[in-house]
Amino acid sequence: MSLAELANPSRFLALAGRLIPWLAGITALLFAAGLVLVARSPADYLQGETVKIMYIHVPAAWLSMLAYGVMAVSALGTLVWRHPLADVAARAAAPIGATFTALALITGSLWGRPMWGTYWEWDARLTSVLVLFIMYLGLIALWRTIEDPTRAARAAAILILVGSVNLPVIKFSVDWWNTLHQPASVFRVGGPTIDAAMLVPLGAMALAFTALLLTLHLAAMRNEILRRRIRALGLTAAGAAR
């Protein structure tokens, strides 16, 4: 099935209906495997067992940016190609991205208190991630405020693209500024600096979280298509009643 064929919401619904149960099963298996690997992983020589927070904090932080990346591509789809599913994809990703961003902030704070001695510091990485969270909330509010879906889609797409400037700021904030947050230790020139004993469970949890994001996003897109169909039917009924 090509991308053009998927532009048809009915075909997309059929495909999503077939994929979601499989993806949900794969996600559950990946989480089970990931959690076993986390339980067996060694303590860090400095952080002790607190390193176990990293196995959920890091994937949550990655996915907070991945979800926004999906929204940015979808925003291009809305503005440039006027793809019928582009706004559906962006709108469905926003609550999921917001939740993962909140999880990254919460778990980061819970790691920061014992390791840094503080729950929060207004440093570049933490502040830019907080800005990302506020942008997610702003976009959700924007979609809810404008009733006409076409107008809401265009306004949201522009705001998403403006906000995407924050993604490289988050990624490179630890290099550009002197921050409390440690620099990149997985996706960096020269390869990861983490020992394989910790890199493997981290990778497994990242895969599990990514599968969860994919499953939830497909399910939320399916819901969004149904919501728009219901709205259209409601408008038809209201028009006929006049």
Partner: peptide, 9 residues
């Protein structure tokens, strides 16, 4: 702190 993090996730 660890248990709270996993509970949040």
């Amino acid at each position: 702190f660890i248990l709270l993090s996993y509970a949040a996730a």
